[in-house]
């Protein structure tokens, strides 16, 4: 499904701000994998995601999706493979456009826009059904501007947009970090529902260790631009928060300084 081969990325090379963000990442995702990604600030998690989706270019290495080498493909062309949800709830939707318009845009992801109507009556009916599944009362607000919604509602809509046309890969970049705990839990359960019902291959970055253990079938831990820990199946199920923290302090050679990693 996704193959990352020996990817390197350095920001501001040759300057005092040089940052080796990724140092030789190798990762293969199998169809249907739901992978949670943890690691301290600056470990390279978001860089990895942005590299896969094409927001940044790689210095060296290869990114292959479904057998297609996309390493040099611009982000908007690559978008047809991905559904993306960002940490900032404002980032994934167009605030001045209606809920149905946002969904219609996502439905056309990867297709060349034409002079056909931007939304059809049939699509409206489908959007209504999908929105009622979210159970947020949005099914009667198809023509409301997204900007009027709360952060949690916007994030739920972004999720729906991301999974609308069963993407090859779903990329979640700490998509519940900016929400209050109750809303975060709700959005996470919607995530789980959409991912498992569509059997979508998913990469989810999280700072919450409990969520990282609870969700998905595979967990990877990053530190200093490398993948330091990769577990799946039964081994992952038996993980504990304490065990993970211990693992982290081992791999980071005692440099356990990241506050956000510890909190859960």
């Amino acid at each position: 499904m996704l193959q990352i081969e020996n990817v390197y990325k350095t920001f501001n090379p040759g300057t005092i701000n040089e940052k080796k963000a990724l140092r030789g990442i190798n990762l293969t995702l199998n169809p249907g994998d739901f992978v949670t990604v943890i690691g301290g600030n600056g470990a390279g998690k978001s860089t990895l995601l942005n590299m896969i989706t094409g927001v940044y270019s790689v210095d060296s290495g290869k990114i292959i999706i479904d057998g297609v080498d996309v390493t040099k493909m611009p982000d908007y062309k690559r978008a047809k493979y991905f559904g993306r949800v960002f940490q900032d709830p404002m980032m994934g939707t167009a605030a001045d456009m209606q809920i149905e318009e946002n969904l219609a845009l996502a439905l056309r992801r990867g297709k060349k826009p034409t002079l056909r109507p931007g939304i059809t009556a049939k699509e409206r009916i489908r959007f209504k059904e999908l929105l009622s599944m979210l159970d947020l009362g949005l099914e009667d607000r198809l023509t409301s501007k997204v900007g009027l919604l709360s952060g949690g509602q916007r994030q739920a809509i972004t999720l729906l947009m991301a999974t609308l046309e069963n993407p090859k890969l779903l990329m979640l970049d700490e998509h519940t970090a900016a929400l209050d705990p109750q809303t975060a839990a709700k959005v996470l359960s919607i995530t789980d529902k959409l991912v498992t019902s569509g059997n979508i291959t998913t990469l989810m970055i999280t700072h919450n260790m409990r969520d990282a253990i609870h969700y998905g079938n595979r967990l990877i831990m990053m530190n200093n631009g490398e993948i330091v820990f990769d577990v799946s199946g039964e081994e992952k199920k038996s993980l504990t928060v304490d065990g993970l923290i211990k693992k982290f302090s081992e791999t980071s050679k005692g440099m356990l300084s990241d506050r956000t990693l510890l909190s859960d």
Binding site: A79, F86, A94, D96, L105, R109
Partner: peptide, 16 residues
């Protein structure tokens, strides 16, 4: 319209 509203979202949804 999406481009004017949110470029980031537009590119993520495949808009050039």
């Amino acid at each position: 319209r999406a481009t004017g509203c949110n470029q980031n979202m537009s590119r993520a949804n495949g808009i050039n």
